[in-house]
Simulated scan of single mutants.
Amino acid sequence: MRMEIRFASKRALVTGAGKGIGREIVKKLAQCGAECVAVSRTQADLDSLKDEVPGIHTVQVDLGDWIATREAMEKVGNIDLLVNNAGIAHLSSFLETTREDLDKVFDVNIKSLFNVSQIVAKGMVERGNGGAIVNVSSIASKIGLRDHAAYCSSKGAVDSLTQVMALELGPHKIRVNAVNPTVVMTDMGRMAWSDPSKSGPLLARIPLGKFVDVDDVVNTVLFLLSDQAASLNGIALPIEGGLLAN
């Protein structure tokens, strides 16, 4: 029996939708029948995405700006499905990471997720129809990666917040889960891992011998948003080719 995922009559909001994983999530959600709200800080990326998927709504905002984000999210209307995908990485050793570096990473990777989710979830609770939220975390929440002190710690916070959200929102029929991919060769992934001397040792620890394709993440996110995952709540799902088994 073929499992088909459909989101007809659902409204979905995706952050970090201009590029990479977020962009492909928007395209796939739209293919599955959802009305999509794409959020990015770069208007040109939103414009080109709308050229590809004319039916979407776009919101340009810097998610690192708490107040501007709240103002923008208050105007998007009812949301049934939320994907918190926006994220940034700053590469420096633990000893060299500055307060400014840490603030920038945490403002986007965890504070904006908290901010957007709070507004969207309040709407879900008020309407009483339930909903689903997926937070895009990282395998970096589960293992230490050299020069990723700010990034690893921000993604650890994402996993912890996911559990608290699942605990508190579950009684309102709102499921909250995270996905934790290893390296995905988006622009940000290439920035950090294109050097074979760095990526080689990590690849050698992955039994499948490869990093993750964008579609692997997109398909997992859509599954967790769907009714096919109706009993999954509060999990952080590794997408990593067996890295954690090694």
Rank of each mutant, 00 (worst) to 15 (best):
G18M: 05
K27R: 14
G64R: 01
D227V: 09
R99N: 11
E71H: 12
S93M: 09
K173E: 10
N84A: 08
R11D: 03
P238R: 01
E24S: 14
K155V: 12
E126G: 12
P196Q: 01
V39T: 02
S226D: 01
K10G: 06
G241K: 02
E100T: 11
N115K: 05
D45F: 10
D47H: 14
A149S: 11
V212R: 00
I143T: 09
D213Y: 15
I239E: 03
L13S: 04
D51W: 15
G20R: 03
V158D: 00
N180G: 07
E126V: 12
L237Y: 04
V108C: 05
E240K: 08
R41Q: 15
G189L: 07
L82S: 01
S153K: 06
V134T: 01
L222W: 00
V59Y: 01
S141M: 05
A12L: 14
L102R: 08
V212F: 04
G22Q: 01
T97H: 04
A68L: 13
V83A: 02
A192E: 12
G209D: 02
C36G: 03
G18I: 07
N233P: 10
F7E: 00
E52R: 08
L167F: 13
D216K: 04
N129S: 09
G144Q: 03
A34T: 05
R6D: 10
G77A: 15
K75W: 12
A192P: 13
V26E: 00
K10S: 10
I21N: 00
L167Y: 11
I235T: 11
M73T: 06
V158C: 04
V136K: 00
N84H: 05
R41M: 14
R127F: 05
V116R: 00
V108H: 00
I133C: 06
G170K: 04
S199A: 13
K28A: 11
E35P: 14
A236H: 06
A12N: 02
I79D: 00
S197W: 08
F94H: 14
Q31L: 15
K155A: 07
D65T: 15
A12D: 02
I21S: 00
P171I: 10
G55I: 11
C152Y: 03
H148F: 15
K142Q: 09
I239C: 08
K198M: 11
G200Y: 06
A204S: 14
E35V: 11
L232D: 07
G20F: 06
V214P: 03
M165L: 13
G156H: 07
A140Q: 04
I239L: 13
A121R: 02
N129V: 14
S226Y: 02
A192F: 07
D147I: 06
N78Y: 14
A166Y: 03
M1E: 10
L169T: 10
D80G: 14
N109A: 13
Q118G: 09
F114C: 14
A68F: 15
D159E: 04
F106Y: 08
K75A: 10
D187M: 09
E126Q: 15
V26M: 02
L243G: 01
S40L: 08
G131A: 09
S92K: 11
L232P: 09
A149P: 09
L145Y: 10
